[in-house]
Design a protein around this nucleic acid. Structure first.
Length: 233
DNA sequence: CGTTTTTGACCGGCGC
DNA sequence: GCGCCGGTCAAAAACG
């Protein structure tokens, strides 16, 4: 299972409300923050598609669905979080999935429902809540989202075009961290990629900021994602 | 020849 | 204030 400390070295925890992992049992993990975000992820081995992000103001209740990805014959999971409350998933008894509505002030779960795993076929396996430190005013940060993937390749194809602008060896690790910026004009989104010190088979990818444009697909790519974008926007 | 990568320099935040 | 550390810059090299 994942521990929170695992990620404290990799990203700012101040806005973190929880994390989830996908697929279940689970080489992939996302951070859920109050300021972002909800990633929309299709996962297929070495390819990860982050298709869209839901703006924070998106006033919507939780909507989770799992649909087959026609290209990859693997499940695609949709998660939408938004509105005044953050909604989240939790696996409590095995094979039972629950979502809770979360009070942003207290981080307490104020609603809780459960439903059967098979009925809804969800891919989210766990979520854990963490209290937000609310005291000190801090510098506004671009929303961040990070996950880890078991992968031989460092840079996963996410549909966007990136230019590397730096590389750094970080303390107590043998693998360097790489810094990328989105090549689109006026788009300031960055990502960084590194291997997990404790397990170099794992790649950690962190995105920062929101794209001001849609992915620059390579020809074949657009069908599924545009359908899904239509669904969401 | 335009674009991307490489890589040491530079810079700012933070702890001491 | 100083040194460490992580993030970014930018000139040169590499790439296609």
């Amino acid at each position: 299972m994942f521990s929170q400390s695992l990620f404290e070295d990799h990203q700012d925890m101040s806005s973190q409300l929880g994390f989830f992992s996908y697929p279940p049992n689970c080489n992939n993990m996302g951070i859920i923050s109050s300021t972002t975000t909800l990633p929309f992820i299709g996962y297929n081995q070495n390819t990860l598609k982050t298709l869209t992000m839901i703006p924070p103001s998106f006033d919507h209740s939780l909507n989770i669905q799992s649909t087959p990805d026609p290209r990859h014959k693997e499940d695609l999971i949709t998660t939408i979080f938004g509105g005044p409350h953050l909604l989240s998933l939790q696996k409590s008894p095995p094979n039972t999935w629950a979502w809770g509505e979360v009070n942003n002030e207290s981080s307490n779960i104020i609603k809780r429902r459960e439903f059967d795993h098979h009925e809804h076929n969800l891919g989210v396996s766990s979520i854990k809540m963490k209290k937000i430190k609310s005291s000190s005013r801090r510098k506004v940060r671009e929303p961040r989202f990070c996950f880890k993937t078991m992968s031989d390749v460092d840079v996963l194809d996410d549909g966007y075009k990136w230019r590397k602008y730096g590389q750094k060896v970080v303390k107590n690790t043998q693998h360097p961290r790489s810094y990328y910026r989105c090549t689109q004009d006026n788009c300031r989104v960055k990502k960084r990629v590194e291997r997990l010190a404790e397990d170099p088979r794992m790649v950690i990818t962190t995105y920062e900021g929101r794209h001001v444009h849609s992915p620059s697909h390579d020809e074949e790519d657009s069908q599924a994602s545009s359908q899904l974008n239509n669904l969401l926007w």
